[in-house]
């Protein structure tokens, strides 16, 4: 599997490493994907890198690659963001993978081996949901709201109504809320805020977890929040050119 830029892998690693220390990557002809729960079982993260994300991609037999994020991160730090990455996994020797980084002019090539782990992964079945509310907005804006409000309090409440979407945090000494309304005047789709809902709803989530989830803003200019009463929120980042996505399901806080 050859990616045109290592930056994609670096960003994916940054987006999951606070939550997941080791995970199985499932490789098949469609691409590479992973699903993992954090140790606290509060967030389920799913990553899909489709064949379209790669400059070249071949997977003759489905394989599971058990990857330890820490050494993987050390290896990836050796790659320049604009260097190509080739990942090679051999079906005859499933003890390790090889990673080769090449810069555009091929003046430099570096090769690494990463030992694979035998991870007892558990796959969760995510039911198809009829969401009560969906909000799409610029991922940078979502990130700023979450980062700011997480400083105010550890509970982040998201309320959707005809007023728009309201993010509220309450701490011991202060309370803050931010309201976003659907944008009509913005031309660029990636800068728009779109809100749809069937019934007004209000749900509370742990702000520190939501903060970790905003790391994926580096992967996509927009984010979609899907909410339903008494269900985990789905925070979805779609990468450009049908390259794939990262989705987080965060369980709510409830009385």
């Amino acid at each position: 599997a050859r990616l045109p830029r290592s930056a994609v892998l670096k960003k994916i690693l940054d987006s999951v490493k606070d939550l997941v220390k080791e995970t199985n990557w499932d490789c098949n002809e469609e691409g590479m994907s992973m699903q993992a729960l954090d140790t606290g079982r509060i967030v389920l993260v799913e990553v899909m890198l489709r064949e379209a994300a790669f400059e070249s991609y071949a997977c003759e037999v489905p394989m599971t690659l058990g990857i330890d994020m820490e050494p993987f991160g050390k290896v990836l730090r050796c790659a320049g963001g604009d260097e190509k990455v080739t990942i090679k996994a051999s079906r005859n020797d499933q003890d390790h993978i090889e990673l080769v980084f090449e810069n555009e002019e091929k003046e430099r090539m570096s090769a690494f081996e990463l030992k694979l782990m035998d991870i007892d992964g558990e796959h969760m079945a995510v039911p198809d949901a009829e969401w009560g509310a969906e909000i799409s907005m610029p991922s940078s804006e979502f990130k700023k709201i979450v980062m700011d409000l997480a400083e105010i309090g550890s509970d982040l409440t998201i309320a959707v109504s005809k007023l728009g979407v309201t993010f509220t945090a309450q701490g011991n000494n202060c309370k803050g809320s931010m309201v976003l309304q659907p944008s009509t005047a913005v031309d660029k789709k990636s800068e728009q805020v779109a809100i749809s809902f069937t019934e007004p709803l209000e749900m509370t989530f742990a702000a520190p977890y939501m903060k970790m989830i905003t790391k994926a803003a580096a992967l996509s200019s927009t984010v979609t929040l899907s909410l339903d009463e008494a269900c985990p929120i789905c925070v979805r980042y779609e990468m450009e050119d049908n390259a794939g996505h990262i989705k987080y399901y965060l369980a709510p806080k409830e009385d």
Partner: peptide, 14 residues
């Protein structure tokens, strides 16, 4: 704050 729910209360193992 409110108590934190777990993902496993909503999604089951495959």
């Amino acid at each position: 704050g409110k108590p934190q729910q777990s993902i496993t209360s909503f999604f089951k193992k495959k």
